[in-house]
Simulated scan of single mutants.
Amino acid sequence: MDGALIVVHRPRGTGGRRVTVRGQIIGLAHNDRDLVEFLRQSGLDETTAEDMVAGDSAMIEWRGGRPHQYEAA
């Protein structure tokens, strides 16, 4: 999915995944709760953010690793 609104990048060697929204880095998520909080801080209400993460929304692109996995392989 080219140009995804929200990108969760590959797990880092030390754990966690960089999260970008519209190309801007918004944080390093270590779990789904962190991801929901970053999305909430970006302007989504908490229920929408939770639904997007839990429902594997097409607006979220998971790169270089399995969705919801935050530890380095």
Rank of each mutant, 00 (worst) to 15 (best):
S42V: 02
D56F: 14
G3V: 06
E46S: 10
M1A: 15
I6R: 08
E46W: 05
L5F: 09
R17T: 01
D2Y: 11
V7L: 03
P67I: 06
G3M: 09
I60C: 08
E50S: 14
R22S: 12
Q24A: 14
G65Y: 05
G27A: 06
G55M: 02
A54C: 02
G27V: 04
G64F: 12
P11W: 06
G55A: 07
Y70T: 07
E71P: 00
T14W: 12
R33Q: 13
L35P: 00
R40E: 02
S57R: 09
G27R: 10
A54I: 00
S57Y: 07
T14R: 15
R22G: 08
V19D: 03
D51N: 13
R63F: 05
M1P: 11
I6P: 01
M59H: 12
V7T: 15
L5R: 15
W62L: 04
D34W: 01
A29S: 10
E50Q: 15
H9C: 05
G16R: 02
D45M: 07
A54R: 12
T48E: 02
V21I: 15
D56A: 13
G16C: 11
Y70F: 15
D34T: 01
M59W: 10
G23Y: 11
E50G: 13
W62V: 02
I60H: 09
N31H: 09
S42D: 02
E61D: 14
D56Y: 12
G27C: 06
R33M: 08
I26M: 06
G55F: 00
M59Y: 12
S57P: 05
A49C: 04
